[in-house]
């Protein structure tokens, strides 16, 4: 069967549009991610420092696109503590994204990044968090953890070797 190129193109466009429309109707067409982090899995609850945190959001699901305001909303860490910990001006802390750490910590090895925020939130809230990579914290963050969080001896030792001095 011979087919004209115009017909092939029009059929292709119609097929793609119909496919998009159909998948949208079925709920498969998602172009945006649900910004809500996942809750901690039930099997990990027994590892938690505080049983009162049951149903808390998983700190491991903190994303680079999260703003400090997102973290404050989901994980209930005060904005002031987040701003102080990561040396971000308080007036721009709410909209500051975790992935923008590289603009204030221009370390060539990128040692302070999204994993640093995961670590900080997890220890601040006493939530379970498995270190998958070596994460560093700025000195003010370590100080806030020592002052406000119930950290273990093991965590204290980790902070002693994974804290970076920041420029004021």
């Amino acid at each position: 069967m011979k087919i004209r190129p115009q017909t092939a193109i029009v059929l292709s466009i119609l097929f793609v549009l119909a496919g998009i429309l159909g998948s949208w109707a079925l709920g498969w067409w998602q172009t945006q991610t649900d910004r809500t982090p996942q809750r901690l899995e039930s099997q990990r609850l027994e590892d938690m420092t505080s049983p009162s945190q049951a149903g808390a959001y998983d700190p491991d699901d903190i994303r680079g696109s999260y703003t400090f305001e997102d973290i404050n909303r989901f994980y209930e860490v005060p904005l002031a503590d987040l701003a102080a910990a990561f040396t971000v001006d308080t007036d721009r802390a709410a909209g500051f994204k975790v992935k923008d750490f590289e603009t204030i910590f221009p370390d060539p090895d990128g040692e302070i990044g999204t994993s640093s925020m995961k670590l900080f939130v997890a220890w601040y809230k006493g939530l379970p968090y498995e270190l998958k990579e070596e994460s560093f914290l700025p000195a003010p963050a370590a100080a806030i953890l020592r002052e406000k969080a119930e950290i273990t001896l093991e965590q204290e030792e980790y902070l002693n070797t994974h804290t970076l001095e920041t420029q004021e």
Partner: peptide
Amino acid sequence: LHSSALVLMALGLVVAFFFGPI
């Protein structure tokens, strides 16, 4: 990534099966 990318991939492959890499 989002599920829309999977949908577009599937649609693209079907179109390619009939008319090639349009």
